[in-house]
Each structure stands twice: as C-alpha cells, then as structure tokens.
Design a protein around this nucleic acid. Structure first.
Lengths: 200, 200
DNA sequence: GTCTATATAGAGATAGAC
DNA sequence: GTCTATCTCTATATAGAC
C-alpha cells in the first residue's frame, strides 16, 4: 500500500523508545526482574502512559523479540553481502562473540539467556524466542550447504557452531577475567576451516 | 569433635527438606520466580515456619549452592574412584549430559542457568555460584594434567569441555526434539581421545 | 519448632482527567 | 498521547500465640 512499511504497527516514537529500553533492560537484568517502573523510568514517561502502548508485559516481550529478530536479520544480510565465501561468513558469526565481548562478559548472550529464562518461566513466548535461534541456525546451515560436501551434515554443523557459541558466552560470563573467549573463537574458526572442503 | 560432621549446621529434618525442595524449584523455575510459598508448599509447612530456619531468601540460596557443591563433589569422587584413566573420567563428565538428558531438555544445566540468572540479577551470591564451575574446572584440569603432555594446556582443555557442555545444554533446552545431544557428546568424547597422547 | 495472623513494599494493571 | 491516582495481588519478612 504505502511501500516499505509492511509490518502492522510501527507508529510512534514513544513506542519505539519503550521497545528499545525494554530490549536493553531485559538483556541486562532479565525479563522477569525488569519492572514497568524500570522501563518507564529509562524512557522518561509515566507508568500510566505505558498502557497506552502495551496492554501487558508479555506484549512488550513480543515486541522486543520482534525487534531482535529484525536486528539480527539485518546483521546476517550484511555478512552475506560483505563476505567472500561461506566459510568467511560463518567466521563473521563466530566473531560477534569478540565484537560484543564486554557485554557478553557482563550479561551473557542475549539470545541464549532469554531463551533459558523464558524456558524456566514456562512462558508462552518461549517458542517465539526460539525463532531467534532458528534465524541463526537456518542461516548457518545455508552457509555450510554452500560450502559443498562437508564431513558433517550442514544442519549438524550449524547446531555445533551455535552450541559452542552459547557455551563460550556462558563461561565468559562466569569467568570474565579470562582471555578464553578469544582462544575459543580461534579454535572455532579453525574448526570451520578444517571441515571446509579444499577449494579446487 | 564428633567425627564426620565438620560443617557448621546440619541439624533438622525440616531444614534439609527445605533445602532439597528449594534446590529442585530453583532449578525448575529459577531462583527469582520461586517464592517462599512455593517452597513451603512443596515441603508441606507454613510460610511462618520458614523463617525459623532461614532468615532471608538469600540464605536459602546459599544453602542450596552448598548442597549442590557437596553433591557434585561426591559425584566427582565417584568417577575418580570408578574409572580407569583420566580420559575415561573426563568422558564420565561429558556423559552426564546424556544421563540427565530429560531434565536438561526441560530446564537446562542447573549450574549454568543458576550462574546466568544470578549474574543478571547482579546478585551477591554470583561468586558463590561460580564455585560450582570451579569445582568441575579444577577437576577436569586435573584429569587433563594426568593425561601427560597434551596439545592444549590442561586448564584450556578443561574450559573447552566445560564450555561445550554448557552450549549443548542450552541448545538441547531450546531444541528438545533433536538427537543432537547424543551426537555432540560423542563428538566431545572423540575430541578427548584425539588430544590424549597415545599410551606407551 | 510450628502455627496464624499481619506489616510492608512492589509488582502488573485500570480509570479517568487533561 | 500523557499524566495522576488507585486497585489488586503477591512477594518478603515480622510478631506473637501454641
């Protein structure tokens, strides 16, 4: 109809500000321990105003997940556009651990920690949050497929890289003082090179 | 003085029952979202009685962590006693993922999820909880040392195995339907064999 | 040691004025 | 669209009887 904007609701600066603030706070403090007061305080609006934009806390959560999906999707597209081959693209993924090192040390992985928290809360948005993993899984699988025949199935390789990234993030959070994050990412990159078939 | 019991307070069946119930609930629901009502309900006592045993919620948390430490320590000692060489012992560690598969799928790793939650809550018991990781890290390091000269430093190898276990647990929680847990643990065992020096 | 109140604070959520 | 005021529920924690 009016071009670019295909998503249902995107109106309002305040709404976007709420989502942005909630995104940060959910990451830093966790979903459950972040209150409306925290978010509205961060945005600089009253608690009452809140409910004009979101009827429930779960609605904000959904919006935050959507925001994260859009953000990561854009990131993946950038890598796909910028990098030479599939191996190099996969290494881009691995290196976000280094790029976001300080945040990961403080708060862990934004996707993994949210997934675990919602799982424990037995929250209905658990599946929605898993879509974030799906995004990376599918993208990684695609890259491994593009590599040609590898020793491991493309999806298994994708899950392997995902799992190792998650583990590194969790331990980097528990042991923030280590240089272990860099060491592990290098090992992971070496692993990618090892399973990649030699170029003709 | 009276032999075995060297820890300060161990009196009381009710106290132990509270710790046990809290341990389970903290694992299943998370620390923050577990209320006194939940725990006292599970034990079958009144909320008021609670405060005769624990003055604050943080005190229960400390007791739960202590309980987990003791439990894991006993487990490690069993493996050290039962298994032939260091490589076999390390594989015992790796295989707890399989042994506890159904719980891990539902709730993740009890150590990793607690560590991440307390980290996000910026909770003072965060360091205490890291002691659980330390336990495994030190034990694993010891096993790698006992292997003789390996391609990786013993502590780096220990952290590597810890990280991969954490990652597998997180993804197994997000994707409970996969047989990916088994595949990954086999890969990890193969990795251990690969870095182990050949027996003379 | 266990119970029944109760105090207090904070959460999510609503109503209605501007 | 934003505000203040308020409702309701639940959480941790306390007091005091048995």
């Amino acid at each position: 109809m009016c071009g670019k904007r295909d998503t249902h609701v995107a109106h309002g600066k305040t709404r976007d500000a709420i989502i942005k603030a909630a995104d940060d706070l959910f990451y830093q403090q966790g979903f459950e321990s972040t209150s409306f007061a925290d978010v509205s305080g961060a945005v600089g609006i009253s608690r009452g105003n809140f409910y004009h934009h979101f009827k429930t806390k779960d609605e904000i959560l959904d919006a935050v997940i959507e925001r994260r999906v859009a953000d990561r999707q854009a990131m993946l597209e950038t890598w796909a556009a910028d990098s030479a081959g599939p191996a190099e693209r996969i290494k881009c993924f691995i290196r976000i651990l280094c790029v976001n090192e300080s945040k990961i040390r403080k708060y862990g992985c934004p996707i993994g920690t949210l997934s675990l928290e919602l799982s424990k809360l037995d929250h209905s948005a658990s599946q929605h949050a898993r879509g974030l993993f799906d995004l990376f899984r599918t993208w990684l699988r695609r890259q491994f497929e593009d590599m040609g025949p590898t020793s491991l199935k493309a999806d298994a390789a994708a899950m392997h890289i995902l799992a190792r990234s998650q583990g590194v993030a969790t331990l980097a959070n528990a042991y923030p003082e280590e240089d272990f994050l860099e060491r592990e990412t290098e090992q992971m990159c070496a692993w990618v090179d090892r399973i990649a078939p030699e170029p003709d």
